[in-house]
Design a protein around this nucleic acid. Structure first.
Length: 560
RNA sequence: GCCCGCGUAGCUCAGUGGAUAGAGCGUCUGCCUCCGGAGCAGAAGGUCGAAGGUUCGAGUCCUUUCGCGGGCACCA
């Protein structure tokens, strides 16, 4: 019996209580969905609900009276073994062993589809994340968004949404100019400009650009006139940085559907069109020689310049065009993940969204993630390109591997800043909880292999009433919770919930395993339905662990 | 100064109004005569930063306050 089925039975019991006149309540006051949850304490049964307390005010009676009326009727539902009224009016529900055990069959049958819901069906989501400037490799701050963003995309898809992963390349403007100047200077053997980019990678890229131009039969860019040389290094440098970033993200298991270049917005006239549109809508004004968007009409704390007095587009101008472009591509939900150092953009971006006539928070969502603090020996480590202490995506993967890196970055809420101790990562990689979860999966795989060798086959028998051990009730409960967790993670945009869930599921499995609820017969003991049914449970657990790890982009190894 | 996020076990972090606040790591004690000990059982460790308030009920919501991080451009 799944939680959803139980929820329906609960509703039916409540409706009957009202029909019988036991509870005086308008049925329209019932919440759309009656949810049951796993109580913290096992003694409180398999499932619990506080619906009686919620309805007490509307009905004008004590919660326990409602609870009693529902309990009497719910006890008659098939699959329900016991219903108790506890405390101020909780309903504690215990399922019939066989009804609870039926769940494993539905999990095995659903396979990779177990946990998918229609929660967000029909939504077209554009999820933008990472979007690091192509002026250097992705460092550890950006890696967090790669891990979290990609998992979020998978979670949203599992909840039924159509998702496009998008990366915005800021290949236009002052920082790119500085990048190009730095390349040019280093290629000519000169000092890095005052406001330029240092680091060994600049030299490497500069060399590669020169070699690339020569190989293509074009003149040595170092010898070109200043403007042309700068352009050659800009184009060549951005291009190389672009492929490097793409490649390291790919190695990290993150592939974007769309890599969008800011430059294209300026070249295609999209910026002018967006500004013209806002002008028609009456939100544009001219002052001090610049063109402004009146964002204060929509809650921003000051108006924003979109075309500077020198005629150049300000950064936000491209954002306007970009947002409009996404909407015109048919996305009803534009989600952007940003680091906390960009949270000041929220006000203007939401105002911009409203200026277009859209609904902030619905059509445009901005998720702010806190930054990663890098530690060494427990002390803060400042990343400095000059000091060579920048930790890149590639460094991190080399140190701990993709699975451990993704998992440790994705398992905590993006709302909390995260301390990453490099020594801890290098010295004790198996302290990462990912191994706890992966080991549980490897164990299920091992049990399945051994079962096959011993002639224990699922198709020979299944008797869920034999899943009577306490550890089995706990494990079944954890398995049944999975779809709810995924739906919640999708709704709240919090993929870390998947990791936390997997840790408790793995724990329930390990405990079950250590209870000697054996899948294999001992010695010359015959294979019984008990063995076969436990194999069903083992395999269902394996399926859910694999599904969950998949949502995190982490491998589910057969052996470790 | 104003705005946002965070203060929960020694450390890193879960817990978006429910019952006795959890996990991993670290410390201590046990468990390999049959499915892998990267595991399990148990112990120790908490005034959930502080003070008020709302509620039948607050780690969770509101106000104030302290501490930490981040942000407040005609930069990108």
């Amino acid at each position: 019996m799944t939680p959803a089925e139980l929820s329906l039975a609960l509703r039916a019991a409540l409706v009957r209580a009202v029909d019988d006149g036991a509870v005086d309540l308008d049925l329209a006051d019932l919440p759309a969905e009656l949810h049951v949850e796993r109580p913290r304490q096992r003694e409180h049964g398999d499932w619990a609900t506080n619906i009686a307390m919620q309805l007490a005010k509307k009905a004008g009676v004590a919660p326990r009276l409602i609870a009693e009326a529902v309990a009497v009727r719910l006890r008659e539902a098939p699959g329900v073994a016991a219903v108790d009224v506890a405390g101020p009016g909780f309903l504690n529900i215990t399922l019939d062993t066989a009804a609870a055990g039926e769940l494993v069959r539905s999990i095995v049958e659903a396979g990779p589809g177990y946990g998918r819901t229609q929660e967000l069906a029909g939504e077209r989501v554009n999820l933008e994340f990472v979007s690091a400037n192509p002026t250097g490799p992705i460092h550890i701050g950006g890696v967090r968004w790669a891990a979290v963003g990609d998992s979020l995309a998978r979670v949203l898809q599992a909840a039924g949404a159509g998702v496009t992963r998008e990366y915005y390349f800021n290949d236009h403007g002052g920082q790119i100019d500085r990048f190009a100047r730095s390349l040019l200077a280093r290629a000519r053997g000169e000092e890095t400009p005052e406001d330029g980019y240092g680091g060994a990678y600049i030299d490497e890229i500069a060399e590669a650009v020169v070699a690339g131009e020569l190989a293509a039969g074009r003149p040595d860019p170092r010898t070109l006139p200043a403007a042309e040389a700068q352009e050659a290094f800009r184009a060549g440098g951005v291009d190389r940085m672009f492929s490097e970033i793409k490649a390291s993200l790919h190695d990290f298991g993150v592939d974007f559907d769309v890599y969008f270049h800011e430059d294209s917005l300026h070249e295609s006239g999209a910026v002018e069109r967006a500004v013209a549109r806002l002008r028609e809508l009456g939100h544009i004004f001219e002052a001090d020689g610049a063109t402004w968007l009146r964002t204060t009409d929509f809650g921003d704390d000051k108006d924003r310049v979109i075309i500077k007095s020198d005629g150049e587009a300000a950064y936000i101008a491209a954002d306007l065009a970009y947002y409009l472009d996404k909407r015109e591509r048919g996305f009803d939900r534009v989600i952007i993940m940003l680091g906390a150092d960009h949270h000041g953009y929220i006000g203007r971006m939401m105002a911009m969204c409203a200026a277009f006539g859209d609904v902030p928070g619905v059509n445009l969502e901005i998720l702010i993630g806190q930054l990663v603090n890098l530690l060494k020996d427990g002390k803060p480590l400042r990343m400095s390109k000059r000091a060579g202490t920048v930790v890149t995506l590639e460094d991190l993967v080399e140190l701990v591997g993709v699975d451990a890196a993704r998992y440790s970055l994705a398992r905590s809420s993006a709302d909390s800043s995260l301390d990453v101790d490099l020594d801890l990562l290098t010295r004790a990689t198996n302290e990462n909880p990912v191994f706890y979860v992966q080991y549980a999966h490897a164990r299920t795989a091992n049990v399945a292999r051994n079962a096959a060798d011993a002639g224990v086959r699922r198709e020979d028998g299944f008797d869920p009433s034999l899943l009577e051990h306490e550890s089995e009730a706990v494990l079944l409960g954890a398995l049944s919770d999975y779809p709810r967790v995924i739906a919640q993670a999708a709704r709240l945009r919090e993929p870390h919930r998947v990791a936390r869930y997997l840790e408790t599921l793995a724990g329930s499995y390990h405990k079950w395993y250590d209870q000697k609820r054996r899948v294999l017969p001992v010695g010359d003991e015959a294979v019984t339905d008990a063995h076969r049914t436990r194999l069903w449970l083992n395999d269902a657990t394996r399926q859910v662990l694999a599904n969950g790890l998949g949502l995190l982009g982490v491998g589910a190894p057969e052996r470790m």
